[in-house]
Design a protein around this nucleic acid. Structure first.
Lengths: 215, 215
DNA sequence: CCTACCGATCGGTAGG
DNA sequence: CCTACCGATCGGTAGG
C-alpha cells in the first residue's frame, strides 16, 4: 500500500474516532510514519484531505449500490437482500458508518445537497417497488415508503456507528449467540416486521453478516 | 435567566452544532455577550463546562423518565405512551439528541459506563413488561427485548438528531401533512408494527408530538 | 466581569 | 520526504 493510500486510511480512522476538528494533521502523519509537512505534500490542505477521505468512502459505496438495486427488483427475499447488503457494507468497516454520521452532524448542508443529487434517485426506484408491494397487499398499507427507507438507512448507519458504546445496554445471555449477531438479527427483524404483512416472523439467515464482521 | 444558565444554554447549542473540539470558549462567551476570561470565572475549565452542560441535559431527562415508566406499567397503549414521551422530550429540543449522539461518538467509554449505571436498570424494567407481553401472545415471540429497545432508543435519538439533514431525501407530497409529522408518524408505526401481533396498523394519534415541535 | 498576557498547538509555507 | 519556521488561535492565568 503506497503512502497516499496509507494517509487516506489513517485519516478515515482518526476522523471516524475523533472527528475533523479533534484530529490534527500531525497525528495522522505520525500514524503513517511521516512528518506533517510530508503529508501536506500529498494533500495540500486539511480540507482537501477531508474531501478525498469522504470520496474514498462514498465511491466504495457507489460501487456496491448497483448490485443492491439489481437485487431489489422484486419480492420479499430481494428486499431483505438489499438491507443485508447495506448492513454488510458498513459492518465490513464500522468507521464508514461513524464517518458518515459525523459528517451529517458537522456539515448538514453539504451532505443535504449530496443526498439530493446522488442518493435520492436510487431511493425513488426502491420506493416504486414498495408501492407495488402495497398494491399487491404484501406490504403494510400505512407504510410511508420514503420515510420508511429513511428510517432504515438511519437505523443501519447509526446503530452500527454507535454499537460499540450502546451495546453496553444489552445484557449477556446464557446461549451461544453473541451480542453483535443479536443486534443485526433484531435489526433485520424490525425492518421485515414493520414492512411485510405476514405471519412468519423468524429471525432468518444472517450468517453472511456475522462472517463479514470480524467479531 | 442569569449568566450561568445563559452560558450553559449556549454551550449546549454550540456543542450540538459543532462538537466539543469544533467550539472555542471565545465563541460561547461572545454568544452570551461576555469575554472568554469571564466565562472561565463561572466554569474554571472547558472540560468542567462540558461536564456541566451534559449534566443539564441528562438531569432534565431523569426528571422525565419516572413519568415514562409509570406509563409503561401495562398494555399496548402504555408502551406507545413511553415511545411518544421519549420522542417528545427530544423533539422539544433537538440539540439534546445531537449532543447525545456526539457524546456517544466522541467519548464512547465514558458514555458506556454512564449507560450501564443509570439507564440499564430502567431498561430491565421495560424488558420485563415486554416478556410478559410475549407470554400473553401480544408481542412477537422472536423479538429480542433488550436489543429491540436499544434499536428504538437509537432510532429516536439519531433520527431526530439528523432529521434536518436527512429529511432532504423525502419528497414533498401534495397533501397537507408536513415532513416532520410523517417522520414521527412512521417512527411510531415501525416501533408498533415490529413489536405487537395485531392486524390494526393505523397511524394513530400523534397530535402531541406535532404540537411539541415548533415547526 | 474586565484587560493583558502566557505557552502550546494548530494548519500551512519556504527551501532543499 | 525532510528541517525550520510562520502567524493565528487555542485554553487558561494574573491581577484588578
Amino acid at each position: 500500500m503506497d503512502v497516499r493510500e496509507q494517509i487516506l486510511a489513517q485519516t478515515i480512522r482518526h476522523f471516524a474516532a475523533q472527528g475533523f476538528d479533534g484530529t490534527s494533521l500531525k497525528e495522522i502523519a505520525e500514524a503513517v510514519g511521516i512528518r506533517k509537512a510530508s503529508l501536506l505534500y500529498h494533500f495540500p490542505s486539511k480540507d482537501i484531505l477531508h474531501r478525498r477521505a469522504l470520496e474514498t468512502v462514498v465511491s466504495h459505496w457507489q460501487e456496491v449500490l448497483p448490485n443492491l438495486l439489481r437485487a431489489a427488483t422484486s419480492g420479499e427475499e430481494q428486499f431483505e437482500a438489499v438491507i443485508q447488503e447495506t448492513i454488510d457494507f458498513f459492518i465490513s468497516d464500522p468507521d464508514r458508518a461513524r464517518l458518515m454520521v459525523r459528517e451529517v452532524l458537522d456539515r448538514p448542508e453539504a451532505i443535504r445537497e449530496m443526498l439530493k443529487e446522488h442518493v435520492r434517485p436510487w431511493l425513488a426506484i426502491i420506493c416504486d417497488y414498495i408501492r407495488k408491494g402495497q398494491e399487491q397487499g404484501r406490504v403494510h398499507p400505512h407504510l410511508d415508503p420514503e420515510v420508511y427507507l429513511l428510517h432504515m438507512i438511519n437505523m443501519i448507519l447509526s446503530s452500527l456507528a454507535t454499537f460499540e458504546c450502546m451495546g453496553a445496554l444489552i445484557a449477556t445471555r446464557d446461549d451461544e449467540v453473541d451480542l453483535f449477531t443479536r443486534h443485526v438479527r433484531e435489526l433485520l427483524r424490525i425492518a421485515r416486521a414493520s414492512m411485510f404483512i405476514t405471519n412468519k416472523n423468524e429471525p432468518g439467515n444472517i450468517e453472511r453478516s456475522v462472517q463479514g464482521s470480524g467479531r
